[in-house]
Design a protein around this nucleic acid. Structure first.
Length: 739
DNA sequence: GGCAATAGGCTTTTT
DNA sequence: GCCTATTGCC
């Protein structure tokens, strides 16, 4: 040990230590799940500062979530001392700061606002309306996803229009430029801009790029497998000069391909950065052997991954339990029962459990069961706090006050709370503003000049203008806290919900109070709290960030949100074909591989125990249907899974539809446990009589395909033939002969 | 312009 | 089945 202050190096294994000590040149750390990735990152930063005497402000570390950034900062600071001036944050928060400093270069106010997905959709919608494009025929969401994809691939509006081929691309090519124009005139950025605008900036101003290149001599990127093309470009730019780039990731945990994450970034790192050193962290410190075996048996099925073998010197531990439920209520009850059991035995406390699911919609039933048993729980995600209507209304006021050019926010609140400014009046203002190329706020200042506005409305608009102006003036004179509180009082944003006594209104009032508390908290945390600083934080926050892991409660969240976390006991629910893997991925091998990685991520969150569950029936918004167990259950190494025998709570209700286990086309042998099932369940074959909910009695005349894609043709008594997808068809099997 | 009734979308994952 | 946005009526 050269230096006593570097005691922490002794806590590392040889591979980790190499990854920490190789500070110069490009480094790729392939860090398997639970292999001490965060530890390597934090120690590496500490090592740079303590041993290599690198000033902390020359180190840039980028993470995926604010929570990860916060934890990293905390851990590094405990090693090297607080307030060191480190650059740690998400891509979006780091570059939004940089954009604020450089805002002059692109004629933006440093107080620009950030639009979230809902804002983006509103904007696209209003553009389409103005252009006379049918939003029924072309959902704004879809148009937006095209625009977003283009942006992330760094395709400009001009380039886009020259390559547009299909009808939809043609529409996008017209909407996209106008969308960018309006963002610009509103002094707003969307999430994609926070990454792509810096790239354009660096392209255009080499000296600006130079400035940041020399400022950030060491660049570290966490969760590298989830970076997209644009983020990759940004990293490349920053690292071009000094080449001290260290990326840490695990291709097996890449689960954001759908959002543009480009797995090539990790698979081709060595090609992109010649001379890169690669370190593999393969010792897992988190999970028991059985959990690792199970996880490996899943991810092994994927092609196109970097070969690696996770190992652990932990004991085998318990096998995974597979719970089989009649319906989703039953599934939830089984999960809750397991938790009660474990807590009762005093082996665990509530915070040791995580219940994971593929889609947020699955949380409801679980919540009901937990509430029913008085088990404390916290739910991450679902209806996001900062996306609630009442919060977004209040935010729109605050956004307009920081940035009066934000037309979208103005539009949202000009008549909320109701002040008698209707659509007709508003569209007249809009039209006039467009003719004069003014922002709406500047237009309503001159409300007297706008024709055809009734006196009543004129007065209301004038009052609204004065209200906002007053707060624009106040924002630098009084504290953030005072500002927001006074605003909420004056606009009655809280009172309108207080007056009404419905559950809904009470919830909204509570949310606004919670928001006020958040402002308070922000103000006490930041000495120089500003409105735009607060808004930025709010815009870039995610629900995992606000998740309180200290609270003694069971955690519910999606598999995606669980990435990077760990729990002693993990439940993975809804393991059914069409749900997990999701129905949208069934057709595409690539998407299926991503689902498999998602399952892998879920499994490797657990330290000691994993419960898997699936249900024979599940209701969706359009009714109820029968389910097949997920193919992932078949793929699991059966030596490490224990089956909890199917035990209906009460007398088994009649199954509608078909319950049958058919192995997929490939020749995997069915999991032994299902055999008991397949014997019970009738196999569909021509000649069988069925009773359909809607069409009555009929006879199967043809069966095509197998498994979940199976289609059945049925001839009904009136002689009509109908073709069904077996898994969704609502009929019961009557048998071969009926009397 | 305001309100109640109705239609229509949603259930993949999020910075 | 739930939530929001739109529509139609006052």
């Amino acid at each position: 040990m050269k230096n006593t202050s570097l005691f922490f190096l002794n806590e590392l294994n040889p591979a980790q230590r190499k990854a920490v000590e190789t500070t110069e040149g490009p480094v790729l750390v392939l860090a398997g799940a639970g292999s001490g990735k965060t530890r390597v990152l934090t120690f590496r930063i500490a090592y740079l500062v303590k041993e290599k005497k690198v000033p902390p402000w020359e180190i840039l570390a980028m993470t995926f979530t604010n929570k990860a950034a916060g934890e990293m900062r905390e851990r590094v600071e405990s090693l090297i001392g607080v307030n060191a001036g480190l650059w740690v944050g998400t891509f979006h928060s780091i570059f939004s700061k940089i954009l604020r400093w450089e805002s002059e270069l692109f004629n933006y106010s440093p107080d620009f606002v950030i639009y979230d997905t809902e804002d983006q959709e509103r904007l696209v919608k209003s553009i389409m309306n103005d252009m006379g494009v049918s939003i029924q025929q072309y959902p704004p969401k879809m148009i937006l996803s095209f625009i977003s994809r283009a942006k992330n691939n760094l395709i400009s509006p001009e380039t886009y229009s020259s390559s547009a081929k299909t009808v939809i691309e043609d529409i996008v090519s017209r909407v996209y430029p106008e969308y960018q124009n309006r963002l610009r005139s509103n002094h707003a950025f969307d999430f994609d801009d926070l990454i792509t605008i810096p790239i354009h900036l660096f392209d255009k101003y080499p000296d600006v790029l130079k400035k940041y290149q020399s400022r950030f001599r060491y660049v570290l990127v966490d969760e590298y497998q989830d970076t997209n093309r644009a983020q990759y470009m940004l990293i490349r730019y920053l690292a071009k000069e000094h080449r001290n780039i260290c990326v840490v990731g695990d291709d097996d945990q890449s689960i954001y391909r759908w959002r543009g994450a480009d797995i090539r970034n990790i698979l081709e790192f060595e090609k992109d950065f010649p001379g890169a050193q690669v370190f593999r962290l393969e010792q897992n410190y988190r999970s028991t052997q059985n959990i690792l075996t199970a996880a490996a048996s899943i991810v092994e099925k994927n092609k196109g991954r970097k070969e690696k073998k996770l190992w652990s010197n932990k004991e085998p531990g318990e096998k995974l339990d597979l719970l089989e439920a009649v319906d989703e209520r039953h599934e939830a009850e089984m999960v809750v029962e397991k938790i009660r059991e474990k807590v009762f035995k005093k082996k665990h406390t509530f915070r040791d459990f995580a219940i994971l699911y593929r889609t947020n919609a699955q949380s409801r039933v679980l919540e009901d069961s937990l509430r029913g048993r008085r088990i404390p729980y916290v739910i991450v995600g679902s209806v996001k706090f900062y996306e609630r209507k009442e919060i977004k209304d209040l935010l729109a006021y605050l956004k307009l006050i920081t940035n009066p050019k934000d037309d979208l926010s103005l539009k949202r609140i000009i008549n909320f709370p109701l002040r008698g400014i209707g659509v007709t009046t508003f569209s007249r203002i809009e039209k006039w503003a467009r003719e004069k190329s003014l922002n709406l706020f500047d237009a309503i200042e001159k409300i007297e000049e706008i024709p055809e506005i009734p006196v009543r409305s004129r007065r209301a608009i004038d009052q609204f203008y004065k209200l906002i102006s007053k707060y624009i003036d106040l924002k630098n004179k009084i504290s953030l806290n005072e500002l927001v509180h006074t605003l909420v009082d004056e606009t009655k944003l809280l009172n309108i919900y207080k007056e009404d006594n419905s559950i809904e209104s009470r919830r909204r009032a509570d949310n606004i109070r919670e928001f006020l508390a958040a402002v308070n908290e922000y103000a006490s945390r930041n000495k120089e709290a500003t409105l735009s600083g607060f808004l930025e934080e709010v815009s870039l926050i995610t629900d995992v960030d606000t998740w309180d892991d200290k609270k003694n409660a069971v955690t519910l969240m999606t598999l995606h949100s669980a990435k990077g976390l760990e729990f002693p006991v993990v439940f993975i629910t809804g393991l059914e074909e069409g749900l997990f893997p999701g129905y949208r991925s069934l057709e595409s091998p690539d998407a299926l591989e991503e689902e498999r990685r998602l399952f892998y991520v879920g499994l490797t969150r657990a330290r000691e125990k994993v419960y898997l569950s699936w249900s024979h029936r599940r209701s969706f918004f359009n009714g109820e249907n029968s389910r097949f167990p997920s193919r992932f259950l078949e793929e699991l190494d059966s030596n490490v899974v224990k089956i909890t025998v199917f035990s209906p709570r009460k007398a088994t209700g009649q199954f509608r539809g078909i319950i049958q286990h058919t192995p997929e086309e490939d020749s995997f042998s069915p999991h032994p446990s299902y055999e008991s099932f397949s014997q019970e369940e009738p196999i569909l074959a021509p000649g069988l009589w069925v009773m359909h909910q809607k069409y009555g009695k009929g006879r199967i005349v043809n069966v095509e395909g197998r498994g979940i894609k199976q289609k059945v043709t049925v001839e009904f008594e009136e002689g009509t033939q109908k073709k069904f997808i077996a898994q969704y068809a609502k009929f019961t099997i009557l048998g071969e002969n009926i009397d």
